[in-house]
């Protein structure tokens, strides 16, 4: 089965081709292709050291590939840092969420890109407006309503903090691709279910969501396709509806290959 052949006609949002990344003599990624479409959840799975994190760091502009090209909406796309990626509509929510615990949710949502107003000719922070917009983003885009917007973020539950981190990314109108690194790793079962629901609703809003996860249960619960990495190479991309836990697991560990395995 060759998924690329089937889907090449659709408009890919992200097309990474021949991505290779070397750190000194170590080859972290070797000639990896990755394609992601609008309105889908693409899961990236693989063992430790398979190159998952390196791959998404290249996608989000944190690393520059040694070789290979990235296309966004069919246009060649080069980034020199993470800000370039955000400007182009590719953002990431990291495992540690990059949240400042001692700020309120609204302050976190706008951290680094605060809204300002003019006061006596000076540009000062518009705290009221940020709080209003943060409340709206959380509610309209993520369906999350916090009891109070005035508490510090440290008092929120893991899932709520996750929502704040996601809201910070989706606040940008031009966001096309959201990358999430282990979104459920630190969460309990209930919070995990809520976060997975959140990811689905983002997909239904037309976003491309790329999720790295160690939990195959979560991957099967939300993803449309699964990209399997092993030892720096893509060992296959499968449709979630056409595979099962066992097959994916065998691809991850490199056991007897199956018909679904294609070279990326």
């Amino acid at each position: 089965m060759n998924l690329h052949a089937i889907t090449e006609t659709d408009s890919a949002v992200i097309k990474m081709r021949g991505i290779t990344k070397q750190f000194g003599g170590v080859v972290a990624l070797n000639n990896v292709d990755l394609t992601a479409y609008a309105g889908e959840v693409l899961a990236i799975v693989g063992d430790n050291g398979a190159g998952k994190s390196t791959l998404i760091k290249i996608l989000t502009g944190v690393y520059q590939p040694t070789r290979g090209t990235i296309e966004l909406d069919g246009q060649p796309f080069t980034m020199s840092n993470h800000s370039d990626a955000i400007a182009a509509g590719v953002d990431a929510v990291y495992q540690n969420l990059a949240i400042a615990d001692h700020l309120t949710p609204a302050q976190n949502l706008f951290l680094g890109s605060e809204l300002t107003k003019s006061f006596l000719g000076m540009s000062v922070l518009d705290n009221k407006k940020m709080k209003l917009e943060a409340t709206r983003t959380l509610k309209d885009r993520l369906g999350v309503q916090l009891k109070s917007m005035d508490v510090l973020t440290e008092s929120l539950s893991g899932g709520q903090r996750q929502a704040v981190a996601i809201a910070r990314a989706v606040r940008h109108e031009n966001l096309r691709v959201l990358v999430m690194d282990e979104p459920t790793a630190a969460l309990g079962p209930q919070e995990t279910a809520k976060t997975l629901q959140l990811i689905k609703s983002l997909r239904n809003q037309g976003l491309t969501v790329i999720v790295i996860s160690h939990s195959l249960d979560d991957v099967f619960a939300i993803s449309d396709r699964i990209h399997v990495q092993r030892r720096g190479q893509c060992v296959g991309v499968v449709k979630t509806s056409e595979t099962d836990n066992e097959e994916v697991l065998s691809m991850i560990v490199g056991a007897a290959s199956t018909g679904a395995t294609t070279t990326g």
Binding site: N96, L97, A98, A100, D101, L111, G112, S113, R168
Partner: peptide, 11 residues
């Protein structure tokens, strides 16, 4: 609160 988070948000 978090120098790392601040750095990651471009501060």
């Amino acid at each position: 609160s978090s120098p790392e988070a601040s750095d990651m948000t471009g501060i």
